[in-house]
Design a protein around this nucleic acid. Structure first.
Lengths: 119, 119
DNA sequence: ACCTCATGTTCGATGTTTCCGAACATAACA
DNA sequence: TGTTATGTTCGGAAACATCGAACATGAGGT
């Protein structure tokens, strides 16, 4: 799917980012892992949803990406059958400076924890 | 209430603070308002739960304070019939530098919004 | 001692969110 | 056209949030 002919992807613009929504988005281990991984391919890298090996079901992943997009943490665009994800670093740094730099190492920790066995 | 003869108040210590738990705690407007207000009386001020004029019921407030305490954002101690709250500034700054300084202005925004009528 | 008030917590009910598997939709490619 | 790859949506179960009502504890007056 992707490319919903009718419904376009909704992204809040920079000055409408809500702090509580961004924090809520970043308060989940899975989403934190996604953010950390996206930060590895900054600034121009984009990753399809499948390329994150996440320990949750496909439908749950879909929900997580939706939360990240609607809170303004990531930007998504459709490319054929894939949905590409990019970190909204500049917008986040402008509105909440330091937050992303705090979150990214924590996301790496989460991923490392998965590697070492569940914790 | 307060002074639970048996059950002591549980507080995670500094090196057991979990980033996701702290972020989840700070991702709620009511709790953000509590944090902002506590920051006004730093470093040694303590405020009883009642002194926050919060737009939610008493039982809900109780729950919010519990979340803040168990995530490690605040420290609570009983004084007679009151439960006094203090911001864990040093621990939070040590583990997640900059986070509190980001959250506090946002908490003030929330309170200001309540003043201007609901938004 | 006793009553009453102030301050919080706990309980039960109701409504919202999250998660999963299953089914579906769209695009790419043979 | 099929077939495969990639995501989304749907329906139900489990977890969480909020409220009012009831409860518990301590302080202070009489």
């Amino acid at each position: 799917m992707a490319s919903r002919t009718a419904t376009a992807l909704v992204h809040p613009d920079r000055d409408h980012l809500r702090f509580t929504a961004v924090l809520a988005a970043l308060s989940d281990p899975v989403r934190l892992a996604i953010v950390a991984r996206l930060s590895d391919v900054e600034p121009d890298g984009e990753l399809a949803c499948t390329t994150f090996a996440l320990p949750v079901s496909k439908s749950t992943q879909s929900g997580h990406f939706k939360v990240l997009r609607e809170s303004g943490v990531i930007r998504q665009r459709d490319d054929g059958t894939r949905r590409l994800n990019r970190l909204r670093r500049d917008d986040l740094d402008a509105r909440f400076p330091g937050l992303l730099d705090l979150a990214i190492p924590q996301g790496r920790e989460v991923v490392a924890g998965w590697g070492r066995g569940s914790s």
